[in-house]
Amino acid sequence: MSAVAVKHVEPEENGAVQSSHPIAVWKSRRNEHRLKVPTLDLLLSSSFPERQHLLFPWLREQESCMIYADTGVGKSLFALSLAIAVAGGGEFLGWKSDQRETGEPWRVLYVDGEMHIGDIQERARALIEAVPGIDKTQAGKNLSFLARQHQDPGTPFPLITDEDGMKFVVRQVAERRLDLVILDNFSTLGEVEDENSAASFNAIQQFLLNLKVQGVATILVHHAGKSGDFRGSSKLAATFETIIKLERMKEEAEHGEAQFRVTWDKVRAGGPKKRVRDVVAKLVSSDEEGEQSRQEWEYEAGSLSRLDDMKERMANGEFVTQKEMSDCYGLSKTMIGKDIEKGIRIGLWTDRQVNQWLTKGKQFRKIGKTFAPIPEGGSWRDEPDEAFQAFEEPPDF
């Protein structure tokens, strides 16, 4: 099935456009619903309901988000855990939903275009145990699944770039009173003629905007391209309030294991930009004797800028010892040791890499390719005067 194209349809005498495409429908109804065009005075004097967070602080009602990563990093594990947490009032990687004043739960639809329903069942059974504070009864009633591989042979499955597929999802939103729709993933749920053409994404962009008008939040799971960015035209990014990239932390991941870093490509201005932090997460299995394996999300949240800087400097051979690192960052050797161990634990580097990088640093220092780093806050102005008294005359540089 090819991508949906918006066809030009000549209006009839009464001005109505005869088409069922969302854009055409909007045009046909413009005489039925007057567009709101408030003045500045009216806008400033109006009050609007405060949008609550489905996941604080980065996903609110009627907002859309894209999550993308390379194949095998853990996109679906991330998205399914998130869905369970929202529907069941639990916590995922430190993020939690707001409590509605009405006490009603958040309702979630998970649309999967790739996995077998039995594999989804297996994952859901394991991940519900990995979400702290979950109300399993609530999650069980308020998270629904629409999976391609669960349908009978010959049953058409909705594509989010197809007119009928868009209408089907919108109906589900209304009938189930959904608050969040998760689309996993774009490559298996939609079709575009040319990923590099901005015009090819017109239909999906209008669909995502239409879902916002319907009052539902949306998460689109997508693949990274060869460049490391998400696949397709940059136009796709325009409609999202938040774009998250999951960066691989471990080259050789075991079956069912996920280890990644959550980074923020975009958080729309005016939103909670200052409150989002990078998160390094790992899904681990704990094998207890006589019991079934239990999965758990381990994560570190907060600023990782110093560890990132340490990694770059060590890999470049700039450090020879931990003492040089402590001088550079103004920390004790004990704190530097803890940072190195933390980097190993969360997957930024291995013990072997640290040894290799410090050995590289010694080789570079020996041939004069690098110099000892300047201590944090250090300056030539802090040198004692005696250091320059040996020169009777200024040296000729």
Rank of each mutant, 00 (worst) to 15 (best):
K235L: 11
E298F: 10
F260C: 05
E289W: 07
T218W: 02
K235S: 14
G190P: 02
S227L: 14
D194I: 06
D287G: 10
Q214F: 06
T188D: 07
K273R: 15
L189W: 00
E288Y: 08
G271I: 08
G232Q: 03
K250G: 02
S305P: 03
G232M: 05
H255C: 08
D229P: 02
S234R: 12
L189D: 01
W297G: 03
T239I: 09
E288G: 12
S285C: 13
D287S: 08
V276W: 03
Q295S: 13
N185S: 14
E193W: 15
A253I: 09
E289I: 09
G225F: 09
L236S: 05
I204V: 05
L283P: 02
K226H: 13
A269L: 12
D229C: 12
S293F: 09
E247S: 08
F230I: 04
F260R: 03
S285W: 09
T263V: 14
E252K: 14
G290T: 04
R294F: 11
W297Q: 04
R248L: 07
D287A: 15
F240H: 02
H255Y: 13
E241N: 05
V267Y: 00
R248C: 05
T188V: 13
D194R: 08
F186I: 07
E251N: 14
V267F: 00
Q259M: 14
K245A: 06
A199D: 15
R306W: 11
R306V: 13
R306M: 12
G190L: 01
F240I: 01
R294K: 11
L209T: 15
V267M: 01
G302H: 05
K212Q: 09
T263S: 11
G232K: 04
D278A: 10
E251D: 13
A237Q: 10
I244K: 02
E193G: 15
S303K: 04
E291H: 10
F207E: 00
G232P: 09
E288T: 09
G228S: 06
F230N: 01
H223G: 06
E254V: 08
R268T: 02
E257A: 10
D287Q: 11
K226V: 09
Q205T: 11
P272M: 11
S293Q: 13
T242S: 10
D194P: 03
G271C: 10
A198K: 05
A269R: 10
Q206V: 03
A258D: 06
S200F: 00
A281K: 03
I204C: 01
N210A: 12
